Amino acid sequence: MRHLALITLVVPDYDEAIAHYTGALGFTLREDTPLGPPEPPGKRWVVVAPDPDAATGFLLARAATPRQRERVGDPTGGRVAFFLHTDDFAADVDRLTAAGVTFVRPPRTEPYGTVAVFTDRYGNLFDLIQPARPAGGATG
Results as ranks from 00 to 15, higher is better:
Asp32Gln: 14
Pro106Gly: 14
His20Ser: 04
Thr65Val: 01
Gly123Arg: 02
Asp92Glu: 15
Phe83Ser: 12
Gly123Trp: 01
Asp120Lys: 09
Arg62His: 10
Glu39Trp: 09
Ile7Gly: 06
Asp53Met: 10
His20Gly: 06
Ala91His: 13
Pro41Lys: 08
Phe118Trp: 08
Thr97Gly: 14
Thr114Gly: 00
Glu16Cys: 00
Asp13Glu: 14
Arg105Cys: 01
His85Cys: 09
Phe126Glu: 03
Gly78Asn: 02
Phe89Val: 12
Phe82Asn: 13
Glu110Lys: 11
Leu125Phe: 07
Ala138Met: 00
Gly123Asn: 08
Glu110Trp: 14
Lys43Leu: 08
Pro111Lys: 10
Ala132Lys: 02
Val93Trp: 08
Thr114Ser: 11
Leu84Val: 03
Val104Lys: 08
Arg108Asp: 12
Thr119Gly: 15
Arg105Leu: 09
Phe82Cys: 02
Phe118His: 09
Pro41Ala: 10
Thr28Asn: 07
His20Val: 04
Ala81Gln: 06
Ala61Tyr: 13
Asp92Val: 07
Thr109Cys: 08
Asp74Cys: 04
Leu59Asp: 11
Glu70Cys: 00
Lys43Val: 03
Pro38Asn: 04
Thr114Asn: 05
Val72Asp: 01
Leu29His: 06
Asp15Gly: 01
Thr119Met: 13
Gly23Ile: 01
Phe126Ala: 00
Arg62Gln: 15
Ala24Ser: 11
Gly136Leu: 06
Gly26Ser: 10
Gly123Lys: 06
Leu128Met: 14
Gln130Pro: 04
Tyr122Lys: 04
Arg30His: 12
Ala64Pro: 03
Arg105Val: 08
Phe58Gly: 02
Gly36Gln: 05
Ile18Cys: 04
Thr109Gln: 14
Gly23Met: 03
Arg105Tyr: 09
Gly73Ile: 03
Phe82Trp: 13
Thr119Tyr: 09
Ala135Ile: 06
Leu29Tyr: 09
Pro34Asp: 07
Ala81Trp: 07
His20Lys: 03
Leu96Lys: 09
Asp13Asn: 11
Gly26Arg: 02
Ala49Thr: 05
Leu60Asn: 08
Ala98Leu: 15
Phe89Asp: 12
Ala135Lys: 06
Thr76Ser: 14
Tyr112Cys: 12
Thr119Arg: 15
Phe82Thr: 14
Pro111Glu: 12
Glu39Asp: 13
Lys43His: 06
Asp32Trp: 05
Leu59Cys: 13
Asp94Asn: 13
Tyr21Pro: 09
Gly36Cys: 02
Pro107Ala: 12
Ala81Asn: 10
Asp15Ala: 09
Tyr112Asn: 11
Thr28Glu: 13
Thr28Phe: 09
Pro111Ile: 09
Gly36Ile: 00
His3Gln: 10
Val101Ala: 06
Phe103Ala: 10
Asp51Val: 01
Ala61Gly: 02
Tyr14His: 05
Ala54Trp: 00
Phe27Ser: 07
Phe27Cys: 05
Phe82Lys: 05
Pro131Ser: 05
Asp92Thr: 08
Thr33Pro: 03
Leu4His: 11
Pro50Trp: 03
Gly73Ala: 05
Leu128Arg: 13
Ala90Asp: 15
Pro40Asp: 05
Ala99Lys: 08
Thr28Leu: 01
Ala90Ser: 15
